[in-house]
Design a protein around this nucleic acid. Sequence first.
RNA 1: GGUCCCAUCGUCUAGUGGUUAGGACGCUGGCCUCUCACGCCGGAAACCGGGGUUCAAGUCCCCGUGGGACUACCA
Length: 466
Amino acid sequence: MEKIRTRFAPSPTGYLHIGGARTALFNWLYTRHHDGEFILRIEDTDQQRSTDESTKAILDAMTWLGLNWDEGPYFQAHRVELHREMVQKLINEGKAYYCTCSPEELEEKRKQALATGKKPKYDGTCRDKNLKKTPGSVVRFRGEQSGVTIVEDIIKGNVIFNNEELDDLIIERGDGYPTYNFAVVIDDALMNITHVIRGDDHVNNTPRQILMYQALGFDVPKFAHVPMILGSDKTRLSKRHGATSVMAYKEMGFLPEALVNYLVRLGWAHGDQEIFSQKDLIDLFDLDAVGKSPAVFNPEKLLWLNAHYIKEASTERLKEEMKPLWPTGINTDDADFTRKVIADLQPRAKTLTELASMANFYFTDEIKYEEQAAKKFLTTDVSPHLRALVETISTVQNFSKEDIEIFLINFTKEKNIKFKIIAQPLRVALTGKTVSPGIDEVMTTLGKERVCRRIQNAINYIETQN
RNA sequence: GGUCCCAUCGUCUAGUGGUUAGGACGCUGGCCUCUCACGCCGGAAACCGGGGUUCAAGUCCCCGUGGGACUACCA
């Protein structure tokens, strides 16, 4: 059997968005599963809108997601000579023709057709005029006017189109550049793409593309059109629905494996399994399990997955991932300390940025007490306990979680008080908040010195308040 | 308007003619507990409607309805 070759072909007119990322992911997984080749091609034939920044942004996002490609990136604009040759070939064979209808005329006709309830397709004005190339003229593909074209789609099954519904679309623009529908056919054919996996929004283009494959004498690849990703209002996912840029998720503190795991489950499932490692996915993914219906993007579930992967990640890895995310003013030079901080917060953070903000209190002894917390827990009746704590805590030789726990238990026994009595005051003294990781965890991470200093500060604070 | 696609809890989905319709997120009750989170146990929550086919339909067919995509000298 011939080697499977797939491609991802974004246009560099913006960042890589969620929908594009899932398309890329499906291509990549299908290819890796079948031990094929994954090609990256940048569709930059729109000279007006394509930018190098976008290309770079897309490549960065692909890399971040771990979607490595075996060939490319190829740039479609570099291949225009090839496209023009093919256009010429079609013209020579009478399968394409020059057209001099102006965009304005066309627009006018379209409006009229729509107004009178007719289909707004090209009316064939220049179809049989046998015109020559003139400045500004375009080239149209001479489509079949009768019969049917069947798209054999791996996901959707056979989709049948009446050829009369298809109009003669432009394959070369006035500026001499090919249009998408033509360039994509030429490139996919010449790059020996065996499986075209792309968004649902392309199905209506597919019959016309098939006609072009046939006109050019190329083999028609297999198609798989994956359903759209929708926003909460069930319309196509867009900026209105929130962040749609892949890299925005990186900046918001998401782990790539969380996003990958989330995206793959939009339209694909493997029984009841929710958590998939990259290896799982390569082993299990196939197109036959991809569903037909569109999926609504659900940030809550993505958050849950992210929390899961943060818990799973090694602290060392997280320390690296956190580097660009620490707020300014936080000094993470003490690698050992930073690691401990992360370890404390790891099971509690849904995103890395959330982790960063939760970590604030670790890095400064100048604790800002939450107003309600201080009022409720930093009171005169607890200061004797806090005093006693500072005095005896030096007896803890090994400032480990275990020894601290033992110390605290003994302490409350001696004082004949419940742990609850000092837990919250102590927490507020150490963190400024009523919510934090366990007292023992916080204390061992902070270390004896900081702990003593902070308790002393709290005692002083109580005094100044009264 | 035309063409095409889609339809199981709020959301993501399992389900390939016979199930108490399963799982996950979220929501929620409880347990755990120094707070929170995690974790564990439990709960509410779905087959769009109508016709067929069949002994039997969420599953097959048709028609509605609803939603989406496309309808560019964008990709």
